[in-house]
């Protein structure tokens, strides 16, 4: 626990903060929105910014600020469900394939490859075509379009880990499969896959907006950014904010998730030692050396 607190100070806060802001806005949306995002008010249609409506209103008199905040909540919810479902499905299928091996692995890999060969949005569109549009069919379609990535990665990690001598050591200690899997394999799989998923979150938010933009995702009364873009397009000349603001919100969220994913990836992948990095490495090595010396100096 103290380790975690210590590492908290070295976190790249300027990168984490925007993502946290998005999550906070989404979670607190019901308390932040000044109006019900779906409430129509025909007395104030297509208004510009005012004290009553900070960001103006759309063609049905709905408060734009409330709709953007509400949209954040819808995006976050849908994205979290899809990400969680895809992670669970991918990790379970991929790990089992890697752990069991043999013919089962070959079959699973082929299935994963089929899903990976097609662009995920194409898969999602095809599945929605079969199931019909709607919130839950969008969730299912996106999950099925996304899981293969995680399955492939999980399998690769499992296969690499299984070859490590420490797994053999656990076997010799009499550990059963469940112990080896939960104590050694799963943590390594999650360490990689969760990092990758954090970078994927942005792409998912975008995919949800795309499907809703096409009218295949979140249904109309619910505020959703992609849908707001379509709604606003007809009134581009009257109130460009109707298109610009949801677009801006979407862009910022996607960019901040991508930056977060990149920061995670960079701290994982060793970079070429040059300049500042080299001096930091030297410092790290000196620290490690000191730790070693401390252990060596027996009491």
């Amino acid at each position: 626990m103290t380790e975690l607190l210590k590492s908290l100070r070295t976190w790249p806060w300027h990168i984490v903060a925007p993502v946290l802001l998005f999550v906070a806005v989404a979670v607190l949306a019901p308390w932040l929105t000044p109006y019900d995002p779906a409430a129509q008010d025909y007395m104030s249609i297509l208004q510009g910014p005012s004290w009553a409506h900070w960001l103006g209103t759309d063609y049905l008199g709905r408060d734009l600020l409330s709709r953007i905040i509400g949209g954040a909540r819808v995006s976050l919810t849908a994205m979290s469900i899809v990400l969680l479902a895809a992670l669970i499905l991918g990790v379970v299928v991929g790990s089992l394939a890697g752990y069991i091996g043999g013919r089962f692995e070959v079959v699973m890999i082929s299935a994963i490859d089929i899903f990976l060969a097609l662009p995920s949005l194409v898969i999602a569109l095809a599945l929605i075509g079969i199931m019909g549009p709607g919130y839950w069919s969008m969730i299912v379609a996106l999950t099925l379009a996304w899981w293969a990535n995680y399955a492939r990665m999980s399998r690769a990690v499992v296969v690499a880990e299984l070859r490590q001598p420490y797994i053999e050591a656990a076997r010799i200690m009499g550990a059963n499969h469940l112990h080896i899997f939960s104590r050694h394999i799963l943590p390594s799989v999650l360490a990689l896959v969760v990092v990758y998923a954090s970078a994927d979150a942005g792409a998912l938010v975008l995919a949800i907006a795309t499907l809703s933009f096409l009218g295949l995702g979140v249904e109309p009364p619910t505020p959703e950014w992609g849908q707001m873009l379509v709604d606003g397009m007809g009134y581009l000349e009257d109130n460009p904010a109707l298109v610009i603001l949801p677009g801006l919100a979407l862009t910022l969220v996607v960019v901040s998730f991508n930056l977060l994913g990149e920061a995670f990836a960079l701290s994982k992948v060793p970079r070429p030692a040059r300049g500042l990095t080299l001096s930091r490495r030297r410092r790290d090595r000196a620290k490690e050396e000191a730790a070693r010396a401390q252990v060596e100096a027996r009491p």
Binding site: P165, Y166, A169
Partner: peptide, 9 residues
Amino acid sequence: FQDPLGSLS
């Protein structure tokens, strides 16, 4: 084990 680093997680 031969490789003490690899044999420890």
